[in-house]
């Protein structure tokens, strides 16, 4: 975790591999109703890389992300996070993994309404029973542009502000990987841009690793790497060239 801060990896370049998934399948239902949400996916992720995952609705993006994050288990296949096999871990180990190594940003901001912005940001530390480093928290807050909003409740913040709080919350533990599932799905273009900039900045400035599911070509273009799924299969894996190129790619998938 600390190492991600010290090194300054180049965008697109591959640092050490931190997640390796192989032979992932996920099957829902049986017989007639069988759905192959994932159908033999092999993929790995390197440190300090911003990866976008795209694909038509129902192609398995969310499923893949859930499995990579240990929120769901694959029907077959394995996932290793920093050399540790996570499929088959018990609840306690998974909890520790999430607490220490993973960060999440959701489409629905999922802030606690009873806590202020700042309290929401340090919540993962409170859960872990750790003391927040005030410098780091201050830096994050100013980075997400909420210096004059830190005491506000979520209900007093706009959607974009709430999502920025959520991003800061995901970064506060300096996770090994930050997962984001359609983080801009509920935001307008300006707010979306701010959130994406934040994620981008965390990769550039702190060497954060980000894996993000998105539907928007503009969002996908901001990453270092673009993965596309169709019918549960990995069909594209390359650095994005431009938003227009992404649109072209999507057309071929649909």
């Amino acid at each position: 975790m600390e190492s991600t801060l010290q090194e300054t990896p180049q965008p697109g370049a591959s640092g050490a591999t931190i997640i390796t998934a192989s032979g992932l399948t996920k099957i829902y239902g049986e017989g007639e109703a069988e759905v192959r949400a994932l159908d033999g996916v092999d993929v790995s992720f390197n440190k300090g890389v911003y990866t976008s995952i795209m694909g038509p609705s129902g192609s398995g993006k969310s499923t893949l992300m859930h499995i990579l994050a240990g929120l769901d288990t694959p029907t077959t296949g394995s996932v290793e996070v920093e050399g540790t096999e996570i499929t088959g871990l018990d609840d306690g180990d998974l909890t520790r993994l999430r607490r220490d190594k993973l960060g999440f940003v959701f489409q629905f901001f999922n802030l606690l309404p009873v806590l202020s912005a700042e309290e929401n940001i340090v919540l993962p530390l409170s859960i872990a029973g750790r003391k927040p480093e005030q410098d780091w928290v201050d830096e994050l807050i100013s980075r997400v542009g909420l210096q004059d909003r830190r005491g506000h409740r979520p209900s007093e913040l706009s959607g974009g502000q709430q999502q920025r709080v959520a991003v800061a919350r995901a970064l506060v533990t300096r996770p090994t990987v930050l997962f984001a599932d359609e983080p801009t799905g509920n935001l307008d273009s300006k707010a979306s841009h701010d959130v994406l900039e934040l994620l981008r900045g965390s990769v550039d400035d702190y060497g954060q690793t980000v894996i993000m599911v998105t539907h928007e070509p503009d969002s996908a273009a901001i990453g270092d790497r673009l993965i596309a799924l169709r019918d549960g299969k990995l069909v594209h894996d390359a650095p994005p060239v431009s938003a227009d190129a992404v649109i072209e790619l999507l057309k071929t998938l649909a």
């Binding site: 609840d91 999430r98 959701f106 999922n110 993962p124 859960i127």
Partner: peptide, 16 residues
Amino acid sequence: TREFGMLRTLGAGRSQ
């Protein structure tokens, strides 16, 4: 439910 799920993704254990 969603709040508890979120706390769990942030690393809260069952006992918490």
